[in-house]
């Protein structure tokens, strides 16, 4: 099949889809409608469980099984990336060459790193109260750590993120979420049931199991993203591909494009 035939056939089929979707949209309730039965119930249920952030109440309490599945997807994807981006039989590792980093970059990175990590911890811890939560905070934490790569170099990054530890933490976070669900069963309720005291509305300890699940997710996401990024960085920096003398794209540490500097 030629590319033109393919595109033409696709456009015809896509036109049918577009027409059907447009027609379907005319049957939807008005944009901004006042009827949200599930949404209203979810708000009531969240307030009954003294969780101020309703989105977190849904994610970690009412529909926690979805989130368990979602975190398992993250866990599986990290594991999959570790397996797929492993050093193949015909590949070698090369130590990356450090490169010169602008002093301003170094200063900015060093200053931002602690702030970013602090923000990440805050976002995770306040998931039940304010926008944010385990996932958002976890990503902030993981990227914060990589300021070490931008500001210093790859070897510094390797020192601040022992992969074995973070790999184990990733699994521990995922396992802790699954195990927290068992607390409900042990207390005589259902799996993932919110059995802890609900606390005072709008306090850090409110929401029963929500802050705990939130923390487990935060640990899993932060370590998962660190391990995931490490696989990609490994490919770019350390692993030499078959038939090549050096890494595929030789970008040592620091900003790309800087001339290499002997260590």
């Amino acid at each position: 099949m030629t590319r033109n035939t393919r595109t033409t056939v696709f456009l015809v089929a896509a036109a049918v889809l577009a027409a059907a979707f447009t027609w379907a949209c005319t049957g939807l309730p008005r944009f901004g409608t006042d009827t949200h039965p599930y949404g209203d119930r979810a708000v009531r249920a969240a307030l009954a469980h003294r969780t101020a952030n309703v989105v977190s109440a849904i994610n970690f309490d009412q529909r926690a099984l979805d989130t368990l599945g979602e975190e398992s997807i993250l866990f599986a994807a990290v594991l999959g990336a570790v397996v797929l981006l492993r050093r193949a039989r015909d590949e070698d590792r090369a130590d990356p060459e450090p490169r010169r980093v602008l002093p301003s970059t170094r200063l900015l990175g060093a200053a931002l790193l602690p702030v970013t990590v602090l923000v990440g911890v805050y976002v995770v811890a306040h998931g039940q109260l304010s926008p944010g939560g385990g996932f958002q905070g976890g990503v902030v934490l993981a990227t914060g750590l990589h300021l070490a790569y931008v500001a210093a170099d790859y070897r510094v990054l390797r020192r601040v993120r022992p992969l074995a530890v973070f790999g184990a933490l990733d699994a521990t976070g995922a396992g802790a979420f699954t195990a927290l669900g068992l607390a409900g069963l042990i207390a005589g309720g259902s799996y993932l049931e919110n059995v802890l005291p609900l606390g005072t509305f709008n306090q850090l300890t409110s929401g029963g199991t929500v802050p705990l699940v939130n923390a487990a997710v935060g640990v899993e996401v932060a370590s998962g993203v660190i391990v995931l990024l490490a696989q990609f960085l490994d490919q770019a920096v350390e692993i030499t591909s078959p038939g090549h003398a050096g890494p595929v794209q030789n970008t040592g540490g620091g900003a790309p494009g800087n001339p290499p500097e002997a260590s």
């Binding site: 368990l68 599945g69 398992s72 594991l79 074995a164 699994a171 995922a174 396992g175 699954t178 069963l185």
Partner: peptide, 24 residues
């Protein structure tokens, strides 16, 4: 049975987490 049903998902998930920690 109704309390046991979610365990069919939870058990393999726990097992996977355990394998990754213990695997090394």
């Amino acid at each position: 049975p109704s309390r046991m049903l979610p365990l069919t998902v939870a058990l393999p998930l726990l097992g996977a987490a355990l394998l990754v920690v213990a695997g090394r």
